[in-house]
């Protein structure tokens, strides 16, 4: 099946099998390997990307469902080689260790930025419900998201 979509602002056309998962399309066809696969039951959130501006788990979206959509992956976030403020806050707050969950964490947290009211820690923790990390205990991730929200 033919699909055409925009990925990180660039138009992409491809022929895909209907069952191809968006995450495999991004990773293997487009070589955007920053989006990771951490589970097979849609729990871990490592594969989170933005689809038309909303965070989704790309392991649970078919590439054909993304036909005509606008996709942003972690690679699309750091413009011109400069870290996005959220990425910078992750480094500053030591919010990553092995780095495997990190792209998903960042893409999920991005939805919290730019709101009128800075979320409190409880709200941030709730917003990370769809993302698992096994390294950090989340504390510094929460701090990084809070820091970025305060600055945005």
């Amino acid at each position: 099946m033919n699909i055409s979509l925009r990925v990180n602002g660039r138009p992409v056309e491809a022929v895909v099998e209907p069952r191809l998962l968006l995450v495999h399309f991004l990773r293997e066809r487009l070589r955007l390997t920053g989006t990771h696969i951490g589970c097979d039951t849609s729990q871990c959130g490592a594969c989170t990307v933005h689809l038309d501006g909303r965070a989704v788990k790309s392991c649970t979206v078919l590439a054909v469902q993304a036909d005509g959509c606008d996709i942003t992956t972690i690679e699309g976030l750091a413009a011109e080689g400069e870290l996005h403020p959220l990425q910078a806050a992750f480094q500053e707050q030591h919010a990553l260790q092995c780095g495997f969950c990190t792209p998903g964490m960042i893409m999920a947290s991005l939805e919290l930025l730019g709101r009128a009211i800075v979320p409190d820690d409880r709200e941030i923790r709730a917003a990370l419900e769809g993302n698992r990390c096994r390294c950090t205990g989340y504390q510094n991730i929460v701090a990084a998201v809070r820091t970025a929200c305060e600055r945005s």
């Binding site: 955007l32 390997t33 920053g34 990771h36 690679e75 976030l77 990425q87 480094q91 990190t102």
Partner: peptide
């Protein structure tokens, strides 16, 4: 951190 944050890490499946 920077490369991991930018999605430019290289894990085995990459």
């Amino acid at each position: 951190d920077p490369r991991l944050l930018a999605g430019r890490g290289a894990y085995v499946d990459d």
